[in-house]
Design a protein around this nucleic acid. Structure first.
Length: 798
RNA sequence: GCCGAAGUGGCGGAAUGGCAGACGCGACGGACUCAAAAUCCGUUGGUGGCAACAUCGUGUGGGUUCAAGUCCCACUUUCGGCACCA
């Protein structure tokens, strides 16, 4: 009898063996094919590892371990995305330096991940807050700056009065701060931007050549939000002067129906005509109100449109030459298009609503709807009417024709626009990469000399941000005051730091040569590892992080640092793990599961097995504590197979089919069914009563990526050899299909009996077998037989 | 409002158009035990029947097909994303 399965003992033993002997560390090795498996590196929060992390990491862990057994040289690195607000806030609260907090958290994460037995390349660990790392983050920023891709600009920004931080649009969705939940206000600030819009088209185009789930591609496309339209010039005038106002529209075909113009409250037109606007007080009042309105309200005020007519000026519709009024309304946004629109109430829902409220004319120019009831907005169907030169055309032709016409007459030009805005690249906090720019009164913005990088965060005692929203760094006078690298005169340092998305935008490159201080990524190392083969992470990162890092990689491609325009060949995303109550895990709901508890009670292998068995990997699934027992039972059963080894003929159990299914399922992210197949074959072996050594070895190898410790121990006990020295079992194609199979016999589509026939049996043979085994079939008149060998026989009869 | 994904036992979930419910949990019955836990064995979609078996069954309504959870149309509910983007 074999000793009992003791996860605690064997897991410690194998973790020690793996990590002390550096079993998973890799070097560039041209004799082997490489495979680069990447997981989103964690933010080392004080809460430690979450079960969600474990689900996210375990998929690539399985792929990495399988690929290694298949002979690949596998890069499977780990690191920490450690800059960020929670750490700084915690440091503030507890009076510790963020460096200390970060180091402690990282240590805890590392210890937890090692207790799970992950096969990461620990020697390649990176930390975005390490000077040696962020030197290169700053370097990339400088390259962008030098090429005009980083610029400072005054804009209205979302400001969190609680965190005292300017937030990116993405961090203030629904008008509340992502971090603390307080309401965001609008504030004018001079901040850094990266020109990601310049890459919008390439970011769209690149999606065609990568293997991402359709869902992710769609989200990215929506995020980029490309639209085709035209800029059209309208003459706006008062008694004395004329002004060319450019509006942006995706529907130039409807221009004959434009019965008024609307400009955003911030639009410069109002300033321009301020003297001749009769109701300027009313307008200013409206502007002030609009500014106060937080984004949240602006978005949710859909019920009721508001606006003010600008008295004293009017516009000329360039096609009808009719004079039309000009309004300002906050349903038009300054930061999209040109901040001004031509309103076509008959064919735009918002304009329709506005026209109804203010009693403006609604002119139908496309037949097909009922404009008494609602706007008709179809861009595909309808015949143009009341539209001069466009009359009688269908909408798509009308769009083409009017654009040609306007180009000719100099009224308008075709234009493409994007919803995606330039990336607000700044934080007014301490715990981030300092932006390496020096402000000189004479020379303007001067980049820090590259030889001076990294520009290190100065030591500081007071991390609290200033009331005015400027960074704590602004208080460190002897750091801020410096000399201009260009003219040697007095100058001051930029005190903003970079957002958390910076360090995570290129970390996958650093893993290739993490200790090389001469290169961002060593060219030789890059040549070998190249593109990430498979990147897994959360759905919540597929727009921001994934787009940002694709953008940085494209930029690095453009300046010759990397050789692939797209960083990730394949991307996948795990579903959420919900609490046992089916709700999102949260402290307030008190449904958070601590992975340490599971390891202590059942062991790491059970945790790994369970988290992958829990359900469809890409969908969310509730944590079911009872189901863990099933996984524990299975591993016990697997262990006890060692008592059943006999030198007999391996028959009645199809190990080849099992191998194929498991490896296919691993690569298709179907871990739950992969595990089920192994459970099934173990059950079949128990039924049969014995297992051959060869069968058991194969089973151990195919489940090793999931349950790594127990299989390592068993393999050693049986073969007196380490499992990683073995290779992935090959299946015999010929054994995938059994010769004799039981197939259903249907009569008129209803199951009536089953017969066992050869998969090669002819229709006559199958029909004969069916007749012998199916009561009453002989009495029927057969009209038609559908026979799918090895599958089914369906007899249509009367 | 727009885009996307999904509705299958008591539960998590399986099913290249071909035996619906694999695998696991739970439940029930049994073995072991003084007893319980653990473990092992068996049963387990509903209804009827002692049984062989019959019959109904994948959100709702229709359709295509010899055959539909799977394909098509309409509806409905849930979840996720975007959202006054001109």
């Amino acid at each position: 009898m074999i000793k009992e399965y003791n996860p605690r003992e064997i897991e410690k033993k194998w973790q020690k063996y793996w990590y002390e002997n550096k079993i998973f560390e890799v070097k560039e090795d041209p004799s082997k094919e490489k495979f680069y498996a990447l997981i989103e590196f964690p933010y080392p929060s004080g809460n430690g590892l979450h079960v969600g992390h474990i689900r996210a990491f375990s998929s690539m862990e399985v792929v990495a371990r399988m690929k290694r057994l298949q002979g690949y040289n596998v890069l499977f690195p780990i690191g920490y995305d450690a800059f960020g607000l929670p750490t700084e806030n915690y440091a503030l609260k507890t009076g510790q330096h963020p460096r200390i907090v970060t180091d402690n958290n990282i240590e805890k994460f590392e210890q937890q991940m090692k207790a799970i037995g992950y096969s990461f390349n620990w020697d390649r660990t990176v930390d975005t807050t390490d000077e040696k790392y962020y030197k290169w983050t700053q370097w990339i920023f400088l390259q962008m700056f030098k090429r005009g891709l980083a610029y400072k600009s005054k804009t209205l920004v979302n400001f969190c009065p609680d965190c005292k931080v300017v937030l990116a649009n993405e961090e203030s969705q629904n008008g509340v701060c992502d971090r603390c939940g307080s309401e965001v206000v609008q504030k004018e600030k001079d901040v850094w931007f990266l020109r990601i819009r310049k890459y919008a088209d390439r970011l769209l185009k690149g999606l065609e050549k990568v293997d991402y789930p359709e869902k992710i591609k769609v989200e990215q496309k929506n995020w980029i939000g490309k639209s085709h339209g035209a800029d059209i010039k309208f003459i706006v005038k008062d008694q004395n002067q004329e002004y060319e106002l450019v509006v942006y529209t995706t529907r130039p075909d409807t221009i004959y129906g434009a019965t008024f113009l609307v400009v955003a409250p911030e639009h410069p037109l109002i300033e321009k005509f301020s003297k001749s606007i009769k109701n300027i007080e009313e307008i200013k009042d409206y502007q002030a109100k609009a500014k106060l309105k937080k984004e949240f309200e602006r978005v949710h005020m859909t019920k009721e449109k508001s606006g003010v007519k600008i008295e004293g000026i009017s516009a000329i519709n360039p096609l009808t030459q009719k004079e039309i009024p000009v309004f300002t309304a906050d349903y038009v946004m300054m930061d999209y298009g040109t901040g001004a629109i031509m309103a076509v109430p008959a064919h735009d829902t918002r304009d329709y609503e506005f026209a109804k409220k203010y009693g403006l004319p609604i002119i139908e120019v496309i037949k097909g709807g009922d404009i008494e009831k609602e706007a008709y907005v179809s861009k595909e169907e309808g015949e143009m009417v009341n539209s001069g030169i466009l009359n009688g055309l269908q909408v798509p032709e009308a769009i083409k024709k009017i654009i040609e016409y306007m180009k000719e007459k100099g009224i308008g030009t075709p234009k493409t626009d994007y919803k995606m805005k330039d990336w607000a690249f700044n934080r007014q906090r301490y715990w981030g990469e300092p932006i390496p720019i020096i402000n000189c009164q004479k020379c303007g913005q001067v980049p820090v000399d590259e030889k001076e990088l990294p520009l290190v965060l100065p030591p500081i005692d007071d991390f609290s941000p200033s009331e005015d929203g400027s960074s704590p760094l602004a208080k460190v006078k002897d750091w801020v005051n410096t000399v201009c690298p260009k003219c040697g005169g007095k100058a001051t340092r930029e005190t903003d730091t970079m957002p958390q998305w910076a360090g995570s935008s290129w970390y996958f490159l650093r893993y290739m040569s993490p200790h090389d201080d001469n290169y961002l990524v060593n060219p030789e190392a890059y040549k070998y590892w190249g593109q990430v083969d498979w990147y897994n992470g959360g759905m919540e990162h597929v727009t921001r992080h994934l787009i940002y890092s694709r953008f940085w990689n494209m930029f690095l491609y453009d300046i010759g640092i990397v050789g692939h325009e797209e960083p990730y060949a394949r991307r996948s995303a795990q579903g959420l793990i919900l609490g046992a109550d089916g709700e999102k895990m949260s402290k307030s709901r008190n449904n958070v599961v601590n992975p340490d508890d599971v390891i202590n009670e059942y062991g790491a292998d059970v945790l790994r097995l369970f988290i992958l068995f829990i359900g469809d990997y890409e969908k969310s699934a509730p944590w079911n504590p009872d189901a863990i027992k099933g996984c524990s039972r299975f591993l016990n059963k697997l262990w006890n197979l060692m008592n059943m080894i006999e030198d007999k003929k391996a028959q009645g159990v199809n190990i080849d089919l099992c191998i194929k299914r498991v490896q296919d399922d691993y690569m298709a992210l179907k871990f739950n069914t992969a595990i089920a197949h192994v459970m099934t074959i173990v059950n079949e072996i128990y039924q049969r009563g014995y297992v051959t050594k060869d069968e058991l070895n194969k089973i151990l190898l195919i489940i090793n990526p999931v349950a790594s410790h127990i299989t390592s121990e068993m393999y050693e006990m049986i073969n007196n050899q380490k499992i990683e020295k073995a290779s992935w079992p090959k299946y015999d194609e010929r054994n995938l299909v059994q010769d004799q199979v039981e197939i259903p016999v249907q009569i008129n589509g209803k199951l009536r009996s089953r017969i066992t026939v050869s998969t090669k049996a002819s229709e006559e043979e199958a029909l004969d077998a069916a007749k012998q085994n199916t009561k009453g079939l002989g009495d029927l008149t057969i009209r038609k037989v559908i026979y799918v060998p090895g599958r089914i026989i369906n007899i249509i009869a009367k």
